[in-house]
Design a protein around this nucleic acid. Sequence first.
DNA 1: CTTCCACAGGAAGGTCTGGCGG
DNA 2: CCGCCAGACCTTCCTGTGGAAG
Length: 409
Amino acid sequence: MSQSSLNDIFRSYTNKVGLFKDKNALSSDFTPDNIPHREKQIEELAHVIAPVLRNEKPSNIFIYGKTGTGKSLCIRKVTSSLEEAAKESGRKVKIIYINCKMKKISDTEYRMLTNIISFFGENVPFTGLPTNTLYQKLTKHIENYGGSVIFVFDEIDALLGKVGNEILYTITRINQDINSSGSKITIIGISNKVGFIDQLDPRIRSSLSEEEMVFPPYNAQEIKDILEARVSMAFNENTVEYGAIRKCAALAAQENGDARKALDLLRVAAELCEREGKTTVNESYINKAQAKIDKDRVVEVVKSQPKHSKIVLLSMIKLYGKSQKAMQTGDVYMLYEKLTNQYGLKALTQRRVSDLISELDMLGVINASIVSKGRYGRTRKINLQLNPDLIKIMTRTLAYEFPESFLNV
DNA sequence: CTTCCACAGGAAGGTCTGGCGG
DNA sequence: CCGCCAGACCTTCCTGTGGAAG
């Protein structure tokens, strides 16, 4: 690229009035003053936790709703105004908001506890101590606090199994143990899996769902309202065509009424548009944005996979390249073994590879389902229903790490 | 109806890393 | 320095299973 064209790029940025007025308004952690179509839920939530202001213990709440239905947003809104109200009336209220899905931060029992304790101002070593010690520390902190402590566990379904049961059970038990100290604990659980509550330990289940709330998916009309409100905040006037908004809403409504998705689409579309130097976002950019989001996600995931997982994926791409049709675990494993040998690596067991395959499935890189072929066994049918473009990109991503000869087997 | 394939996927345990406190 | 701990990542061993073929 010549120097002058580089100058052009920068000049065009400074001279032109951009599309965006405040891009922040499209980000997923932006809390607008007004949350459309959630007035009822917000009111109900407020009623449930209001007793805090009278030093009474509110019911625990369990909130269910699909991704992008405004659960976290409403909770954030309600808890922050509760904090304000508490400050005015001199009540002690502490909100402990934990997103359980945060990798490396709150996805294990130990890390979760570290995270919670940090809300009380103590920094615990991120490894090394026995969990027991952490539980003791936490109990002490809550006892000493002498006010209302509200735990918000967002995406609580991410800690299914032992981790979740252990933590939730202990926290509910702390509540009973410290009755005398004046501290009160309330738990708000947020999940996007319907069946989550049934998979919990019965002792926790009843206590967690004293109060239940459902956030229904937004329909296309509602998403359109949301988008319009945000568009006027985020963009300069007359930069987004109505058709683009409609398209966005339609796409997002298809995907379980996910408003976050709609906002992402719009943001990416506008970024693409801006990059091309155009001044109005129209429908075609929404389509491009959709494709870009999908592509970026897959590429990102593939890049961050560990080596063996990449080789497994490579095996699948090669098999797919040959036959263009679905394959099964055994086929993939055979090729995988061959490849690892060539690379001078020790192959993992089939048991492990089976897990890697199902991980790739969950990450949406491949599409696998269990099928029974009667006499010919029961296995995973693996499909790479990716477009050729994506397969090319994946191969290139993988080729970056493996020698050329390796790729042409 | 039974058989039997080709795995799925649970359980338990091993090994390694990074880090604690004494 | 030691012994201990949590967690990531694997292996070993295992039981379970949908449905075409016989």
